[in-house]
Amino acid sequence: MTYRKSFLIFSGILVLLLTLFSTQTLAAFPDKPVNYLLAFDPGGESDITARLQQKALEDVLGVKVIISYKTGGGGASGWSELVRSKPDGYTIAGHNLPHIILQPLQRGNAGYQTEQLQNIYFFESTPNILAVRKDSPFKTVKDLVEYARKNPEAVTIGGSGSFTANHLGTLEFQKITGTKLTYIPFSGSGTALPALLGSNVTALMTYTTMGASYKDQVRILAVAAEKRSPALPDVPTFKELGYDYVEGAYRGVAAPPGTPPEVIKALEKAFDKVMHNPQVIKKMNELAFDIEYIGAEESRKLVEQRTKYYKEMLEELGLVKK
């Protein structure tokens, strides 16, 4: 075979393959493995959720689901990768509220814009909780608030990062209670915990999942959700205690901008089924995730509504970057 001949044959096959792939995309979704991109490291909350869903999702979609990671920048690397990916539904990524709203607002150019992420589904939330050490003198939220009112800035609240649900939640809580607290950001929920156990902070503003994992070592004063968390049935909500304070993080999946509506619909349906799978529900409850059933359209509305809320909040603090 001459070189030219082989080249021709080779490119012929290539063209054939390419057309095959592109026509099949239109035919029926999905017919090849779906790449489920995560913006956070293995072992983190996003990864754990995705791993729990993986098997059920494969069963529903009838194709393999490959979980891959692109981490860094508090999730921004993964999401800017997503918005540059091919909008065919074969690349989806886990995304988080409020990260995807706050990063573009506060950083200016975060590599993606909130609206670029096509919401498919929000399937879980982890509301904020306020936790203190087991031997802390503060037995209730009221104890802590009263002490904080008398001693401005003396109550230190540890949490995960700046411009996160923990951080903004603490600011919101201050406003509601008329206190002045000192928020100390740590590089993650995991690193904030030793600070509490070692009495380096008075309390933690963290997520329900942390509260459930360390329930032997900390006392949870209240949870910032509309209703009590199934994993922490004895812990009152802030609302029950008379504080109108609801805040937390949501996790879901999104597709690149320009993904066809019917593909989004198919994925939405698939995730809806997955989240009704009793196995998945059981595991998620064990790990103290609150399961949510927020479809594509509702997700968009949720993001819109939260964007408005956070924007006002950041503007009040003078932290919006143009």
């Binding site: 860094g72 920048g73 690397s77 506060q106 200016g108 150019n109 590599g111 950001p185």
Partner: peptide, 23 residues
């Protein structure tokens, strides 16, 4: 990259990918 306490983006020279810093 992103500073660990303030949460601001620093010294990225306008390149969004540098948000994740030098590993």
């Amino acid at each position: 990259g992103i500073d660990p306490v303030g949460g601001d983006v620093r010294f990225t020279f306008g390149i969004p990918q540098l948000q994740s810093g030098v590993a």
